[in-house]
Computed example of a mutant assay.
Amino acid sequence: MIAVSEDRQRLVRTAARALARGGLVHAYGHCSQRLDRAHFLVCAARPMGLIGPGDPGVVVPVDGPLPDGVLGEVRIHQRIYARRPDVGGICRTQSPQVMALSTLRRTPRPRHGFGAYFAPEVPLWDDPQLIRSPDRAEGVAAALGDARAVVMRGNGPVITGRDLIQAVVLSWYLEDAARVELEVLKTGLDGALLSPEEAAERATDAGRIYERMWEHLTAGDPEAG
């Protein structure tokens, strides 16, 4: 079994609670951090806001059966890590605005700053069923392609990042992009989209963009450093 440092365990626990604090998960959801090309660490299989200091995550192989006690939808993480060597962290959330928008077979469009991070589009996996088989997990990973997130119709999104911190922050950005999309739809108007050039310039990581949102989402956490 691969050894996991306490720092990595702490990161996964803190990320899980940050997603709960941000209203992006409830009883359901999970997150993971890549350890190496062949393994990742997934949070404990319990409501993420209830994961306490010292609750260990589980090491999961990128290829192979899920360890005992690991949730079935963690197969999505396996297939994404296998396909995407650039991905270092994954969040499976239950974001309410993204969920609502997905029932219209829509995903957030690049209309404002946070939406720019998902330009040109967020792909949709057009199947409302839980992802508990290898074939469905492979389908979701294939639908994701090179994007930062994929939305499963009526089932919530999966968000990726270069590490787990970025994935958590992008999870918040995606939810805000869905909020804006729904507000625009209420007007009955179409509204402007960011051009590819505008989106590329706006989707910056300068100015401690990710770090400041991480600090906001982890404020008051017992293990936040």
Rank of each mutant, 00 (worst) to 15 (best):
M1W: 08
M1I: 08
R8G: 00
R8T: 15
R13S: 04
A15R: 08
A15Q: 11
A20R: 09
A20V: 04
A20Y: 15
R21V: 01
G23K: 03
L24T: 07
L24Q: 07
L24P: 02
Y28P: 03
Y28E: 12
C31I: 07
S32P: 08
L35G: 12
D36E: 08
R37T: 13
R37V: 11
R37L: 09
F40A: 00
L41V: 12
V42Q: 06
C43N: 08
A44T: 12
P47I: 02
P53Q: 11
P53T: 13
D55K: 06
D55M: 01
P56L: 10
P56N: 08
G57A: 12
G57P: 13
V58E: 14
V60Y: 14
D63W: 04
L66V: 10
L66Q: 09
L71W: 07
G72D: 14
E73R: 15
I76L: 15
I76D: 15
R79H: 15
Y81V: 05
Y81P: 11
Y81F: 14
G88F: 14
R92Q: 12
R92Y: 10
R92D: 10
Q94D: 09
Q94T: 09
S95T: 01
V98D: 00
S102P: 09
T103Y: 12
T103I: 09
R105V: 10
R106C: 08
T107H: 11
P108K: 00
R111V: 07
R111D: 11
H112G: 02
G115S: 07
G115Y: 03
G115N: 03
A116D: 05
Y117K: 01
F118H: 08
F118S: 01
F118Q: 02
A119V: 06
P120I: 10
P120G: 13
V122S: 14
P123K: 00
P123C: 12
W125M: 12
W125E: 01
D126G: 01
P128K: 04
I131V: 15
P134V: 11
P134M: 05
R136N: 10
R136V: 05
E138T: 06
E138M: 02
A142K: 07
A143R: 15
G145R: 13
G145P: 06
G145H: 09
A147Q: 13
A149R: 10
M152P: 05
N155V: 04
G156D: 01
G156R: 03
G156P: 10
P157R: 10
T160Q: 06
L164V: 13
Q166L: 02
A167N: 01
S171G: 04
W172A: 00
W172G: 00
L174M: 05
E175L: 00
A177P: 02
A178H: 08
V184C: 01
V184L: 03
K186V: 08
L189C: 06
D190I: 15
A192M: 11
A192H: 13
L193S: 07
L193N: 08
L193D: 06
L194C: 03
L194E: 02
P196M: 05
E197H: 14
E198C: 02
A199C: 14
A200E: 03
E201M: 10
A203Q: 04
T204I: 03
D205E: 15
D205Q: 15
R208F: 04
R208Q: 13
I209S: 11
Y210D: 14
Y210R: 13
M213W: 00
H216P: 01
H216S: 12
H216I: 13
A219K: 14
A219E: 13
A219F: 02
D221I: 05
D221W: 07
E223D: 14
